[in-house]
Structure formats: structure tokens, C-alpha cells
Design a binder for these strands. Structure first.
Lengths: 205, 205
DNA sequence: TAGATTGTTAATCGATTAACAATC
DNA sequence: TAGATTGTTAATCGATTAACAATC
């Protein structure tokens, strides 16, 4: 069995990947842990240590070939393929997520949208037709979808979560401002911009 | 001088505050580190330790009075007041942020919107009129604004950051998918939902 | 009083950094 | 070859947890 890699390391890989993609776009072919660390504001030792969990991607004296490292990181993170995602909640926020092109551009394709409100069912948003909640389980199972985004009010979020998990979803991006309880084997990530704002005000004199 | 409190502790306070606010809405008056920890999936010891950095907010044998603890945390985080915020970038994302009511509801009031594109200047979004970038510095200084959100393309983000900092901004919520270089005394928080998605796919079998 | 829970100290755990041999 | 940078080990640093006296 592969020794378990710390989650905090996994969390930094997408940051590396993003910076490397950017360097690549700028026409840079090779970089070093030092250069990358400088860009990201972290130590070169940390970058080397993080990468070394997955194998030797660099060359002594030279550094890392960016295109190769990108390929390897995409493979490790399993983002070298397209992932289907369902969205629950078709309000203002859900609608904004449907309009956001960044997901599809980077391999996350929203395929279905659900909402509980009868008046929203059948509504067209971008190319999506909002489906009722009772179709969720069958749809998710039929298409073997493993990822979901939640954009419903806090009161509904745990119920929606339980339904998603019962349907086989393993990864949830939660925009509702509430902590979710999930069993082992299911991953939740939280987005609440207000939390970030509240963290910063502490430091403003 | 107050001993410095670890940033990771500051980062958890808004999470506590959010959970406490929710408990309060549910009609609960008193809670314990154990109950709160259970809700949030963290240890009771961590909660007690975090809170103890700021004083004794609880009572042995009883726990914490929620309304009092909320007041105290709001004071510590300086969110017991309203903060003005400028938004840079009036594209799809910026527009979605203007429509999002969660900021104002929790004390962060977007007061001005800027964009570099001539065709966007003067455009009305919700109650805002998009202003040109050359008005940014004067506006920020005049109103003594300390917080900003960035919703521009990655290529423009560092330039915008430099301008914001030159204007006196101390806290930046960055939606552009790029790392920003800022001097000491300026705080940046990042929101890139794709990074969260990429972190979760690693764990999907 | 008996039971419960805090605030805090000490012990443990884990993550980061420093250093350097290996080697391109 | 000389210079540079990796991958890795050991040392350091910091955060979390366990435990318990204090006390409501």
C-alpha cells in the first residue's frame, strides 16, 4: 500500500499546478523549486519535499521541465480527464456558477442542475434546464456522477448532502455557509467568501 | 504588547462565529466546547485553546453563553461594524459578486466598482455605476477604504493589486487564479473553486 | 454536595526547514 | 570540470491533543 500522503500536501498540488500552467503560458520551459517557491511565497524545500512524495520529477543541476511536471501533477490529482458535476440550487448563486466558464475550462463540467422550488423547475439557465429534486438520485446514479456543488440555503444543505451521498457522490463543493456532516470516504470543501473577509479584518489596524 | 496569536487560530474564529450564529438562530442559548466541536468536526480542546487566547469566555460546569461569545468574537475580529469594500472587475464574476447579498448581510458593503474596459464605464449593475480605473486611487483614499475584491483576469491582477495597495488598501479578496505579491501589512485571501475541486478528485477512487 | 466543563500545562504529534550528498 | 539543483535525512519548529486542577 502507498503510504498516506498528508492532505495538506495534496492541497498544495493544485496551487503548484496553477502556477506551472501560468509559467508555461508565459513561455517558460524549465523552472526550479527556488523560482517556483519565490512566486508562491513558500520555501523551495517545501516544494521539493511535497513533490518527492510522488517520485523524482526533477533533474539535479537543472530543475523541473514544466510540461512534464504539469502532466505528472495532473495525473496524480486525476485531473487529466473531464469530471461531470451536478449542481444543486438554481438561485442567484447557482445561476452565477452556471455562467462561470472557469469550471469547464479546467475540466469540471456541470451536467445537471436541480432545485426544490416548483416555480424553478424547467427554467432554462444558459444551456441547462432546472430539474426537480426527485430526479436527482436517478440522474446521479445513471451517469455515475461523483462530484457535486451545493448552492442552497444553509437550512437545506445537510438534507441535500445526505441525498447526494445516498446517490453515490464522493466530493462536494459547498457554498452554503454551514458545516456539513459526511461519512468517511466523502470529501467536502467549503467556499464562504465572508469567512475570508472576517479573517482579514482582524489584521486591519 | 499582546503576544502574537497564530494566524491559523484567527482563521478558525469566523468558523466558530458562523456556527454560533446558527445555534443562536436555532434558539440555543448556551453551548459547550464539546457540542461545538462535534458540530464542526474538531476537538473540544482545540476550541477551548483557541478561545483562551482572547480571555475566559466560558464558565466551568456550564459552558459558553452563545450571545456573549458571539459579541466577543465579533469584537476580536472587528466585525462588529460595517466595512466598506471596493470591487475591481465588472465582468461575469464581478457582476455575480454585486448581486450576492451575503456580503452586505454580514457587514461587508461594496461601495464602488471599477473596470478597465471603456465600454463598461458608466454601466449600471444593481445600484452601482461602473467607474474607470483612474478614479480608483482618489475614491479609495477619499473614503478611507481598507478592503477590496479582485475579479479581473489573471494577467491584470498584480497590476490592480499594486494600485490598490498604493491607494491604502490593506486586505484583498482575490478571485483571480494567480498568486499575488504584496508587502508586509497587506493581507490577501484567495478564492479559486477549481483548486478545491482538484483537491477532491485525488481522493475519488 | 456532585456533576460538568472550563482554562491551562505538559506531552505528543506532525509539518516545515536546514543541510548536504548525489548527480546532472 | 565547476556550478547548480535535486531528493532526502535529521533538526527544528509549531500545532494539536490529553489530562487535570480549578470552579461554577
Amino acid at each position: 500500500m502507498t503510504p498516506t500522503i498528508p492532505d495538506i500536501v495534496i492541497g498544495r498540488l493544485p496551487v503548484y499546478l496553477r502556477a506551472l500552467t501560468r509559467l508555461s503560458q508565459e513561455g517558460v520551459d524549465v523552472t526550479s523549486s527556488h523560482e517556483l517557491g519565490q512566486r508562491l511565497g513558500i520555501s523551495s524545500a517545501q516544494i521539493r519535499k511535497d513533490l518527492s512524495h510522488f517520485g523524482g520529477f526533477g533533474k539535479q543541476g537543472t530543475g523541473y521541465q514544466i510540461s512534464y511536471l504539469i502532466d505528472q501533477l495532473r495525473q496524480v490529482l486525476k485531473v487529466n480527464r473531464e469530471w461531470d458535476v451536478v449542481l444543486v440550487g438554481a438561485g442567484d448563486l447557482g445561476s452565477a456558477l452556471l455562467h462561470y466558464r472557469g469550471f469547464a475550462e479546467r475540466g469540471f463540467k456541470i451536467t445537471h442542475v436541480f432545485d426544490a422550488a416548483p416555480e424553478k423547475i424547467g427554467k432554462q439557465i444558459v444551456q441547462f434546464s432546472v430539474q426537480p429534486m426527485d430526479e436527482l438520485q436517478e440522474t446521479v446514479q445513471q451517469h455515475n456522477i461523483k462530484m457535486a456543488m451545493i448552492a442552497v440555503p444553509a437550512e437545506a444543505a445537510q438534507r441535500v448532502t445526505d441525498l447526494l451521498i445516498a446517490s453515490g457522490v464522493k466530493a462536494i463543493l459547498n457554498y452554503a455557509p454551514i458545516n456539513l456532516n459526511v461519512p468517511d470516504g466523502v470529501n467536502v470543501q467549503y467556499i464562504d467568501p465572508v469567512l475570508h473577509m472576517q479573517r482579514m479584518t482582524y489584521y486591519i489596524p
